[in-house]
Structures are given as C-alpha cells and as structure tokens.
C-alpha cells in the first residue's frame, strides 16, 4: 500500500516537473513549481526526513515560490521576446539526448551503490549525548558540523548585500519593494491582524521544539518572516530603511554571536566551535536564539528585494497588495481546459 503511494507520488512529481519545465507560459510554470514544492515535502516525509520536509515546505516551496511569483508578475512583455529566442529543434534534440544520458548514468550509479550502505548514523548516535540535544540533525548542524551552519548564515548575509547592491544609487538608504497602502476594511488587513499572533506562537514553538524534535530555527524563522511580510503587504507597517541601525544590528547579531561562542569554545573547550563539557546545550540555545533574528530579517529582506524607493516615499493611494505586487492575477479563462 505505502509502496503504491510512493510510486504515485514519484510519478506525479516527475509529471509536474516536466510540465513546469516545458510549459509555454512563465506564470503557469511558476504555479506548477509551487505545487511541485508542496509535493516535494511529501517526498521528504516518505524519506524519513521530517526536518527536511519542514525546511522544504517553508523555504524551498514557500519562500522560493513567493519570490518567483513576485517576479513573474513583473516580467510580462519580456516573455514573448524570450520565446522568440527559443532554440531550434536540433538544439532541443541534443538537449534531450544529453539530459537523458546524464539521468541514465546517474540511475546506473544509484543501482550499483555499495551494500551495506555507508552511513554515519552510528557515529552520530554515539556522540549525540555529548551535545545535549535530542534531535540528531540539530546535533549535526550545531555541533559536529557547526562551521557549515555558521557559513550558511554568512551566505544569507552575503546574498542580501548582493541584492541590496543592485539598487539604483538614488534609492540607497531607502526602502525595498512597493509601498503598500492600508485598506482598513480589506481582508488582508484583517488577516494581518489576526494571523501574526498565532504565527509567532507557532514559530516560537517550532524553534523550541527543534532541540529535541523536528523543527528548528529555519522553519521558525520562515514563519516569522512570513508574518512580517503579511503585515507589510497589508500596509500596516512599511518595509524598513536599509540603513537603519537596528536592522543592521539584527542582521549581523547571529553570525557574530556564533563566532563569539566559537571563540569561547576555543578558550574553554580547547577547540574553536567546541563546547565545554556540560555546556553544549545552553550554548547551542544561545547560538540559535541569536541566529533567529538574523534569519527572520534576512529571509524577509531577500524576499523584499533591492531598495526601490527613497525612505520617505508616500504610499500610493488605494494601492493594495495584489494590485501592486502581482499585475498578473489568476488567469480568468483558466489554464486547464
């Protein structure tokens, strides 16, 4: 029974991926990709990766989907020109040939994987007690391979600097994205008032649960960032000025605290990013707590994009989220006929 479910999920995934890649319309492709992301979370559940499933749903499907949807509304007019540059039949045939051969070679590799499979699970289990956390993935992320996690926060900050650096000079120090006007009777305003308290509780719960159960700072940060975006889109609060001091402090606090704890480890435990005996869990909690604001801010700001207006631009009258954000509403004629 479960095998059949897996097979159906796999086939559906392949069909969606193919559909997304070959679809003519960019909006359709992106919509397909969002659904694909949701389905992918299901795959992760079947692959015993609840943590990965949560991350995939939050970041891979959710935030990436939001980014792409936001972009697709703003590139009408470039699509037709791009389509005219489509490669010829010969190129496509070549592409099919090469893609199929890469996939085939990979499949052959998969079928000849060594038995018994190599694994680090026993080693991880053996050393997990020293980290004081119950969730082995958190243990790997914050003890055995803490450097990767530190670098990951640095990656996000660098990506943010890169995105900001794309701003036109006159808007430097300004705010990203359009200014959303508030519509006091709108449903979005209602949602932005009702949902954030619940979202914050759920986010913090996921954060707290991450030490011993699936969940953790990324999933939590995504939910908190989404709540912030919701409040912004409803026009209840504006996107921050990118030169504001508190914002910059919030962005750097995570990695800086992480490095500081690492140095403390070098001093107290004899190894950079190491933890003194018995102090592993509290120090991991400190790192995660410091990373949380960084991740919330950076994820939301990456979604916001480059600064696009000066700091004191007035809200456009009557503009609400959907009209400003995606000029491409749901296709009225539908795409499924």
């Amino acid at each position: 029974m479960t095998a059949i479910v897996s097979l159906v999920v796999a086939l559906l995934l392949l069909w969606l991926a193919l559909w997304t890649v070959v679809a003519r319309d960019a909006f359709v492709a992106v919509a397909g990709f969002v659904v694909y992301g949701l389905l992918l979370s299901l795959v992760w559940v079947r692959l015993a990766g609840i943590d990965v499933a949560l991350t995939e749903a939050a970041i891979g499907g959710g935030l990436t989907g939001a980014l792409l949807l936001g972009a697709v509304g703003r590139l009408r007019g470039t699509e037709a020109a791009a389509w005219s540059e489509r490669s010829g039949a010969c190129t496509r045939a070549f592409a099919v040939l090469l893609s199929v051969s890469v996939a085939t070679v990979l499949a052959l590799c998969v079928l000849t994987l060594p038995e018994p499979p190599p694994t680090l699970a026993p080693q991880a289990a053996e050393n997990l007690a020293a980290t004081g956390v119950g969730n082995p993935i958190t243990g790997v992320l914050l003890a055995f391979r803490a450097l990767d996690t530190l670098l990951e926060a640095v990656v996000l900050v660098i990506a943010l600097i890169g995105v900001w650096s794309l701003a036109p000079d006159r808007f430097w120090g300004g705010r990203p994205g359009p200014r959303y006007g508030a519509d006091p009777d709108g449903i979005l305003t209602y949602l932005a008032r009702v949902l954030p308290p619940i979202g914050i509780v759920v986010g913090l719960y996921l954060f707290w649960a991450g030490a011993d159960h699936p969940g953790g700072k990324f999933q939590s940060a995504t939910i908190l960032a989404a709540m912030w975006m919701l409040v912004q889109m409803a026009g209840l609060s504006d996107a921050p000025r990118i030169d504001s001091r508190w914002l910059r402090a919030g962005i750097v606090v995570g990695p800086l605290v992480f490095v500081a704890v690492g140095v403390l480890g070098a001093w107290q435990a004899g190894a950079f990013l190491g933890y003194p005996d018995g102090w592993a869990k509290p120090m991991i909690v400190v790192i995660e707590l410091a990373l949380l604001p960084t991740l919330v801010l950076v994820l939301a700001l990456l979604l916001n994009g480059a600064p696009a207006r000066s700091a004191d631009s007035p809200p456009a009258p009557g503009e609400t989220s959907l009209s400003a954000r995606s000029t491409r509403p749901m296709p009225a004629g539908g795409t499924r006929q």
Binding site: T119, V140, R145, D148, A159
Partner: peptide, 22 residues
C-alpha cells in the same frame, strides 16, 4: 535515516534559496 546528509540538505536548501533570491 543518516542524520548527516539530512543536516547538509537543510543547509543546501537554504543556499539554493539565497541563489534564487540573488
């Protein structure tokens, strides 16, 4: 499941998101 690849995956997903954003 082996927790090491799963932890690496979380990192990789976040990196891919950063790439998409840029």
């Amino acid at each position: 499941a082996d927790p090491v690849p799963q932890a690496l995956l979380i990192t990789a997903i976040v990196v891919a998101f950063a790439a998409t954003a840029v």
